[in-house]
Design a protein around this nucleic acid. Structure first.
Lengths: 345, 345
DNA sequence: TTGTAAGCGTTATCAT
DNA sequence: ATGATAACGCTTACAA
């Protein structure tokens, strides 16, 4: 590691200008500065222009803390993600579309990805944010306590828990059930599930969907492997499954990244997909649709989910009356591509 | 899409408590509440405990706007990323390690990923953040204007531009030069470069490193393809290159995701790697090291880069004297795995 | 050890 | 159309 130090001469370093400074220079009262810059219609065009010019020259920007204190709102929203979600770089991110939707609505984004509930709670109940988007897998007390504190919030990527929190999610249980039906309908009887971590609600939902269907089909034998939502899990699972004495004829994965890992390991071993084994994913990440994979999977729409969540959140903030909490359930649809087929006769 | 509305009865909805409320209930003056909760040693244990108990009961949390206004600091740092970086989910992210480093240091993270310089500037010069981490590819005016406003900042993932901004980056030019030397040393003469977008500084650095070496080797013919930093670019590039009349014997990619795309297309076509063609990546993303790829690439350390950047930033904030801006250059090292070899005789 | 007073910079109310 | 005044909630200096 190389360190470089550069010499700079001390700058004049004057104080950061306030509206008072602008007022003095422009020859008006301080509140007039505020009104002029806020574009109040009652300010005469002449003074408005003069004030704006002076503000520009001095490089004046209204201090956010002052505004927030006075107004009681910050136009800032916290996005609470779990550290895990953030770390896994190859799953459909919610944080980015959430940030975009918030930015579009004129809100700033404060990112929170801490483990401790209390740390999170302290940072969203101190008036520093106008609302909270909970994208974390918290089966935690945070939503309850937010409601108690009267902080507007929305749960995202979670089905309506019916306990009074607004939420937006995709019906992963149904999506998983659908693709399991497709696979079962093809006649597969030796089926393997490769699932994500138990603490993630989305993984549990998908598992429930898979199992709900497969348990109802006579003669289907199901085995289950568990790991992360990641590629390495898929590779490891495929090594175990494809090397086993009784190979499964279909491998249903809880995420596309897992499925891609399975696919790659299958190709490494010269196992034909879908000739010898059917592989399905979940999420429809961009890579899944590309030529070399053509993964059969389940599509949902994180962008739309984010937009709906933001809509639900802002609806609470706009009105003082906390209208009945609304929940939005988005569909999850099977996308048939090239990695499924009937079991080898 | 299904919408669900739930009925809730209007809660009592009392005002959010302030230190004044706590003071009244605890029977002390309002500043004593502040001192008690801040843990000032002069407060008697008895009143400290009483105040804390009341605060707890009322659910009092000091309002952040009030603190910030009074103290002149927010303990908040803005991370400015480019929307592109955020959107591409499969490249080594800086945002996550930056967030972690900031959290560890007791700072909150405000995420900014807007296109317009003016929008960014407005949000970081209004006193809402104590400092700025610039992770964006901005060849923009933002750093200059931040310096002019006296806002502490640090450039990250960029080599020291020697114009007085503290910065932290990896020497991608050197890393690229090194891997190009390896490939040239193997005797390759038909070399293709698959690069990222021109507007990204990291891509330009890597290009310069590649070209600097290859131009100096007699008899090397270089062709260049350009696209995004993503998988699809690699797939498309490989289609073009491997289908060409005169195939390259080595393909140097500006990112691992590109290289993985190339690898997959090569396997689809039954082109042996590294027997028929050498493929190298850049970044050493987790997937690159996995068995089925074993990609020869260049490693650098985004986590360490983030940590160093945060260190440099906080150093400016702690001290009033703006010490000489320091820059840190981290190494980028070749990782030899299984996708390189001599050209086929 | 604790209370009183002041002030951070802004916006809103009320005069004029 | 604009100025004077107040208040948002907090921390600090000073007084007691």
């Amino acid at each position: 590691m190389i360190r470089i130090r550069m010499h700079v001469e001390g700058p004049p370093m004057s104080r950061v200008p306030t509206s008072k400074d602008v007022a003095r220079v422009a020859g008006v009262s301080q509140p007039t500065v505020s009104r002029a810059l806020a574009g109040h219609p009652q300010v005469s065009p002449a003074t408005r222009d003069r004030v704006r010019k002076v503000a520009e020259e001095l490089g004046y920007v209204p201090l956010e803390s002052g505004r927030a204190l006075r107004r009681g709102r910050t136009r800032r929203i916290a996005v609470v993600a779990s550290p895990d979600d953030l770390l896994d770089p190859c799953q459909p991110q919610l944080v980015v579309p959430l940030h975009q939707a918030l930015t579009a609505a004129g809100y700033r984004t404060t990112l929170l990805a801490e483990a401790a509930d209390t740390a999170v709670l302290a940072q969203v109940t101190d008036g520093s944010v106008d609302g909270v988007v909970l994208a974390a897998h918290s089966g935690s007390t945070v939503p309850r306590r937010l409601a108690a504190s009267g902080v507007p919030h929305v749960l995202v990527n979670r089905l309506a828990p019916a306990d009074g929190h607004p939420s937006c999610g995709a019906d992963h249980r149904q999506g998983a059930a659908e693709i399991a039906s497709v696979v079962a309908g093809l006649g597969h009887t030796e089926v393997a599930l490769v699932l994500g971590p138990r603490r993630m609600r989305t993984s549990l939902d998908r598992e429930a969907g898979f199992r709900g269907v497969l348990a109802g089909v006579r003669a289907v034998r199901t085995r289950v492997l568990r790991g992360g939502y990641d590629h390495a899990t898929g590779v490891a699972a495929a090594q175990a499954l494809l090397g086993a004495a009784r190979r499964p004829t279909a491998i249903l994965c809880a995420s596309d990244t897992i499925a891609l890992g399975v696919l790659h390991e299958a190709r490494m071993r010269g196992v034909d997909v879908p000739g010898e084994v059917t592989v399905t994913g979940y999420d429809d990440v961009p890579m899944a649709g590309l030529e070399p994979y053509a993964l059969t999977t389940v599509r949902h729409d994180p962008g739309r989910m984010a937009a709906e969540a933001v809509r639900l959140l802002l609806a609470q903030i706009g009105t003082d009356a906390p209208a009945a909490p609304e929940s939005v359930v988005l569909p999850a649809d099977v996308v048939l591509r090239g990695t499924h087929g009937p079991p080898r006769a």
